[in-house]
Design a protein around this nucleic acid. Structure first.
Lengths: 211, 211
DNA sequence: AGTAAATTACTGACCGGTCAGTCAGTAATT
DNA sequence: AATTACTGACTGACCGGTCAGTAATTTACT
């Protein structure tokens, strides 16, 4: 009946393959970039041969797009749910959103996708376009609403909203990107918690509407 | 007499080659990344054949390192000179340093080097190490001194200095990185001036030691 | 001055390794 | 016997790197 219940080991594997391949692909893409990633390696890490990979994804580029898509969508869904159900001051909302993003994306291997897009956007204009429309625009909407709520309530100063969105998200993105670029080469820095605390401290003080 | 005075077209070309090749290489590396850049294309853009490129640079990786080195050093020299000769409040100094960096690096093709390092650090640990030691450490020193000056004078609050350095530089880096990743794909944003103004406004308000 | 030899700057055809993508074949399951 | 899931050897394109050769220029010599 249920197409998702496996009736044999073979079927069970088949169901698991795409997710396993995507996970392996994310690892390699994030670590080495698109061009330097070998599909033989990705397949091997997922426990299959390269031929099998091509049963599930039509090309390297298709695989790349699938990684981007499936990685980031669930996070935005949760973010939007969070915004709706929040009650209380905008200050707490903003802080909660940034911290939650760090938990869900920045601190996990999903954070690698940010670095991946920055690195490869030039080589994949259509993926970049897609990412912009479905990820960045949606993400910025979340922050915009939090900001507007604070300004409307007189809690925040009337800063330029569009640029403020980018300005306040930049440090979080940079922290994430750092983990996947220079940090692994022994160029480490102090812990993310201190960094985030300082960022929020500066940001909320900077936004505060002084009496 | 002067070894740099060309006495024939042929010699004149030879003197100009390395710089021309480096400029072409910067363009391609920044646009496409290291792996996707073809030396045939770089050579062609510089008006020579690939063989000639190999007369001046031993390998693709050597070329890459040379691009990084020669691009970024002069900027730091100027930054340090600026710090020494500044008089007045830390607020103005900090603002001046960030704006000057934007003028010299962010807004020029040198900005591409930031994106390049983020993208390729994982594939070139030794270049990343080199960049960290000679560029990032030096750059952070500039900002640290400006911050410390402000805190010592009671102008700024006593934030955590090391993380504040990164936090306040992140938006400028992100603005630069943006230009070389998603922006060219029609995913543009409002003008850099507004962005920088908002950043400085939020930052200096956030740092301000309130009475 | 004229010219032959030596040097310099550069070319582009070529080689060899790598890797995305293919497909005939195998083994498990129905 | 038929179908499904998978394999891995193979191909062909691509590109970093090489090098024998060419053309421009300088030097050396008469």
């Amino acid at each position: 009946m249920n197409q998702f219940v496996a009736t044999s080991p073979r079927q069970r594997r088949k169901q698991a393959r795409p997710a396993e391949l995507l996970a392996a692909a994310l690892d390699h893409f994030v670590e080495r970039g698109f061009a330097a990633t070998k599909l033989d390696d990705v397949a091997a890490q997922a426990g299959v041969s390269k031929g099998t990979l091509y049963l599930y994804f039509g090309s390297k580029e298709e695989l790349f797009k699938a990684v981007i898509r499936q990685g980031i969508f669930p996070v935005l869904d949760e973010g939007e749910a969070m915004l709706v159900q929040h009650e209380g001051d905008a200050r707490t909302l903003l802080q909660g959103m940034l911290l939650r993003w760090w938990e869900l994306v920045g601190a996990t291997s999903l954070g690698g996708i940010s670095k991946l897009m920055i690195s490869e956007a030039g080589n994949f204009p259509d993926v970049a376009q897609y990412y912009h429309e479905h990820v960045i625009v949606r993400g910025r909407n979340l922050l915009r609403q939090a900001l507007e709520r604070g300004i409307a309530a007189g809690e925040f100063r009337a800063v330029d909203i569009e640029s403020a969105i980018d300005v306040m998200f930049a440090p979080v993105i940079m922290l994430t990107v750092w983990r996947y670029s220079l940090a692994p080469c022994g160029c480490g820095r102090q812990d993310p918690e201190t960094y985030l605390r300082t960022h929020l401290d500066l940001l909320l003080n900077g936004l505060e509407n002084k009496k």
